[in-house]
Design a protein around this nucleic acid. Structure first.
Lengths: 235, 235
DNA sequence: GGATAATTCAAACGTATGATTGAAACGGGC
DNA sequence: GCCCGTTTCAATCATACGTTTGAATTATCC
């Protein structure tokens, strides 16, 4: 029963074995997926012994969970804090405007991915892929997003009184799917848009996500009866 | 070099070996993913010999491609036909309204998945997952969607003159991501919405996708300068 | 109905995987 | 300076994988 209380007193020389493993696994999982990544490839990339991952994480599934344990806390905290700031800004009982809620929802992951640490970007890619994955490793982290989801669900619901429950659920689900697709492979849009879009620019990504989300969530509830479905967007 | 010219004269008793393989593979790939599905599981489910898949499809990757070869033709044809019908409806040089283009884009997969054949639903699930997958099997079918994508790209572009190229590319990419997430796991929204949403009802799915897409794509190009991001959706 | 091609089958091949072992090396506390 | 808990390491286990083989079986054509 190894319960590493104080892993190392001196970690000046690079990093812990476990951190090296997590970094390597993050990289490989994000590029190859869970199944296609072998522990041998992980330990080789990390420059550690094969048995180290079982020692530090217990199993391959434990390694996957450990990746999330390292990153999900800061991300969730930042998201909820941003929502709280928005709530304080508008006042106690007031409804937070849609754009503000969406900004609070998108800003943390976008900004954190843009900061120098490439590990977080890779983590986001893994997380985005889990939206449409199955298996133990995917099921293991359903609860991990539950709290954030509930808070933003409530805030968005309040900002969208014109929608009934069904419309609201549909749109929120689709919007999260759009976000996850973006996170799952940011480079794809750079290629498909032939360079028009720059997924490396956090301001651009954020602005686009918010504009997209506002339009999608804020669209009218029931289709107006006129048949021509021309864009009613531009004021 | 087996080149099965006429596979079978009598196929009254159930189906061909290859069809049994494709059906089983479709089921397992859609539930477990490509890597987690073994040929042994496929052949066992299909009730055929293990070597049959290599005989009929060449390899596991060939099996994956064969699944797409069977389904993608009818889907693409139906989508392009729907777009063509919409084009004829509005007249030669006219711009097809956004809602019509979106309907042509979404209707075929939604309707085809709703018809009795459960195989197509599974195929859609596989296809949706490929949006955020990597590896040979995912790369193998990039060109498979190219033609449809180009046609709808052009039609949507014409319907959205108020957007610049960058905004347009962002929104289209995000919209396709939202759709793929839905196809990749239709049951998820039924669970997360606590039964409010019924992904089995094609009319509901179609209406929601179109409403979502119209709002998302049709949203104003540049953020209005007023700071409160209240929903401008409801007229 | 016999030759010929197409298909099915059981068995095996070589390799890769996740996990485990037990001994060796390391580290801090006294 | 020795002891003990922690960590590393090479070696190995059992299993699962995709693929291949060659013989047996079945369908097709003349």
């Amino acid at each position: 029963m190894p319960t590493p209380s104080t892993p190392r007193s001196d970690r000046s020389s690079s990093s812990t074995t476990k951190e090296k493993i997590l970094d390597a696994a993050e990289e490989l999982f994000s590029e190859l997926g869970y199944d296609a990544t072998s522990l041998r490839a992980v330990t080789k990339t990390a420059g550690v012994n094969l048995a180290a991952v079982n020692y530090h994480c217990g199993s391959k599934l434990g390694l996957f969970r450990a990746i999330f344990e390292r990153r999900i806390g800061p991300l969730n905290r930042e998201r909820l804090a941003a929502l709280e700031r928005a709530r304080e800004r508008v006042g106690e009982g007031k409804v937070i405007p849609l754009g503000e809620v969406l900004r609070a929802f998108f800003e943390a992951p976008v900004r954190m991915a843009a900061r120098e640490d490439p590990g977080f970007r890779r983590f986001l890619r893994i997380a985005g892929r889990m939206q449409s994955a199955s298996g133990d490793h995917a099921n293991a982290l359903v609860p991990v997003f539950a709290e954030v989801r509930e808070h933003f669900h409530a805030a968005l619901r309040a900002a969208l009184p014109h929608l009934d429950d069904r419309d609201f659920s549909w749109r929120l689900h689709l919007l999260i799917g759009a976000m996850c697709t973006l996170f799952a492979d940011p480079q794809r849009i750079a290629i498909l848009s032939q360079g028009h879009c720059d997924p490396e620019n956090p301001d651009e990504v954020l602005a686009q996500l918010i504009a997209f989300g506002k339009g999608a969530l804020g669209a009218p509830s029931k289709e107006p009866l006129d048949e021509d479905g021309a864009a009613e967007g531009p004021a």
